[in-house]
Nucleic acid binder design. Structure first.
Length: 413
RNA sequence: GUGGGUGUAGCUCAGUUGGUUAGAGCGCCAGGUUGUGGCCCUGGAGGCCGUGGGUUCGAACCCCAUCACUCACCCCA
């Protein structure tokens, strides 16, 4: 075989595509239920947009972007995530002039030059929500509630919600100092990765997987205790709202999200084996940072491939009704079959005809393999009396029926 | 980017201490007579054994490289 899909990409074949469609429909249903509207933004944007919004220092920007120069020397990048683009569109089209808050959802492919792994691809897909203009904890709660209900509906086993507050530009620096003060003396004891984190992002030391680091981190100061009063209030109000909505959660003081723009709320949905299937948080300075007016925001993104892995059982049952197969018994009836198929389709009944020139037996076999529930046989004998045979492929029972009544009959069965 | 595992027909896998024509099951196609599927029987197509080098009289089996998949890490959805 000569060509293969590029590393980290894959084809979604017909059998899987059905599951994707079902998942997408499910997501849209919940978005509608909460009053979110879809937005579709381009797959590539100016590189600078991601550098500014996601953050130069993040792994995504520093080593995972698919960046290219177009024929007019523009620096462009295949989107690694969609929040930046949504913010750009929000500003470009003045959505802030519409009714507030602005509640958007999106769905589509994202690109990151990562090493492929289970549920991780270079072209992967996300569903996401963004809510602009509302700074209240209720907005965070709504995003989390929608996410929770959507995920619940997929019967993902062992779904867990972890939540934390990462503070704001007022209180985070102080916490960072505290943390560094605690960590500095341990310089020689942590793993090499963590040593780098000291300089880059000390908060990351907290969720290192290394056993030694974990035990050291266990005694580290906790951010919740360092939050400024507004951040503290926001966090406790959100937790109270979740409790009243009976959404189970666990505060994880070590939860840190990788993108620079997060403020206050950070959360993640995890499940058995898959790890994180969705993550999100608040980004109260992102819009401003991108050149807009001060505008609070909160959002979430779901990893579609991971959802499909986690929800497998639920979607195995899905099976679209196959068309009615129109078989011919006798020579020169192909045209008649085409006409009958057209009649059925005009009446809203899915139908297909024989295209391989097989005999009746072969046609029956094909229809059976394809799972067709009904099969129509056009035979010379019956046709002369304007009749056709309708066969139930499950029971094997067949009847003769007047051709004109066929569409009506198939529509009701 | 780092480390480990794997790579034989469409799919799941066999393949003995390197030895000459590489196998099975499932799937696919065609038959088992004249207008009828799903079971059964028979036959057929389909592999330069991931790719490129090397060792050897000889390699699917050994060595090296490369690509891909996979698991863990980094990070993230």
């Amino acid at each position: 075989m000569k060509y293969k899909a590029p590393r980290g990409t894959r084809d979604i074949l017909p059998g899987d595509a059905q599951r994707w469609q079902l998942l997408e429909e499910r997501f849209r249903r919940y978005c509608r239920l909460y009053g979110f509207s879809e937005i579709r933004t381009p797959i590539f944007e100016h590189t600078e947009l991601f550098q500014r919004s996601v953050g130069e220092e993040t792994d995504i920007v520093s080593k995972e972007m698919y960046t290219f120069t177009d024929r007019s020397a523009r620096q462009l990048t295949l989107r690694p995530e969609a929040t930046a683009a949504t913010v750009r569109a929000y500003l470009e089209h003045n959505l802030k002039e519409g009714p507030q808050p602005v509640k958007l959802y999106y769905q589509g492919p994202m690109f990151r030059y990562d090493r492929p792994q289970a549920g991780r691809y270079r072209q992967f897909h996300q569903f996401g929500l963004e809510l602009f203009g509302a700074g209240a904890p209720a907005a965070d709660a709504e995003i989390i509630a929608l996410s929770y209900e959507f995920l619940q509906s997929l019967s993902i086993k062992d779904l867990k919600l972890e939540i934390n507050s990462v503070g704001c530009p007022l209180c985070r620096p102080a916490y960072r100092e505290n943390l560094l003060f605690y960590l500095q003396p341990l310089e020689k004891e942590v793993c090499p990765d963590c040593l780098h984190r000291f300089a880059k992002n000390p908060l990351r030391v907290l969720d290192c997987k290394n056993e030694k680091c974990r035990s050291l981190a266990a005694a580290a100061p906790i951010i919740e205790h360092s939050l400024c009063p507004p951040c503290g209030d926001h966090f406790s109000q959100l937790l109270r709202a979740l409790e009243r909505l009976t959404i189970p959660f666990a505060v994880n003081p070590r939860l840190v999200r990788g993108l620079d723009y997060y403020t206050r709320t950070a959360f993640e949905f995890l499940c058995d084996g898959q790890g994180s299937v969705a993550g999100g948080g608040r980004y109260d300075f992102l819009v401003e940072h991108c050149g807009g007016p001060p505008t609070p925001g909160v959002g979430v993104a779901f990893g579609v491939e991971r959802l499909l892995l986690a929800a497998e059982a639920e979607f195995l049952k899905f099976n679209a009704a196959p068309p009615v197969f129109i078989a011919t018994a006798g020579e020169g009836l192909e045209e008649e079959a085409l006409i009958l198929a057209a009649e059925l389709r005009a009446g809203g009944v899915a139908a297909e005809t024989e295209l391989m020139g097989r005999n009746l037996k072969g046609q029956l076999k094909y229809a059976g393999r394809k799972g067709c529930r009904h099969l129509v046989i056009l035979g010379e004998r019956e046709l002369s009396q304007n009749m056709v045979i309708l066969r139930d492929m499950v029971s094997g029972v067949q009847i003769e029926i007047e051709r004109g009544q066929l569409t009506g009959r198939l529509k009701t069965s």
